[in-house]
Amino acid sequence: MKSNKTKNKKWYKEILKSLNSKKSISNVKDKFSYFLELPQEVVSKSTKITVINNDSVLIEGYKQIIDYYDDYIKIKTNNSDIVIDGKELDIKEITDYDLVIEGTIYSLNYQK
């Protein structure tokens, strides 16, 4: 009986250990996704940015466009704002979830 109890305890402890393995992950959702090895952007409302060369940016999971100029675009996401500097920036595609920006991109910055 004792041995069974100790085994159960060990099993529980192992899960806890794995959940607490990364101290930097504070959110429960993040912990869960880390434990199940799921992509973070799927579980939590985080933003995924894909940059192709310096002429195309795909932003998945944005909230809204704050500023839109020919050489400057500011986009609001869940955690921070993204500022894209460049030349002749066009919004090639805009959907509920994705945003594709094309043009000559000089820099991509985060603003809190």
Binding site: Q64, I66, D90, K92, I94, T95, D96
Partner: peptide, 21 residues
């Protein structure tokens, strides 16, 4: 408020593309 216009299009499910400033 052109940015707001774009955001409202997104909210109202209006598909727009090739946006140029």
């Amino acid at each position: 408020f052109t940015e707001r216009f774009i955001n409202l299009c997104k909210i109202n499910n209006i598909k727009i593309w090739d946006v140029r400033n």
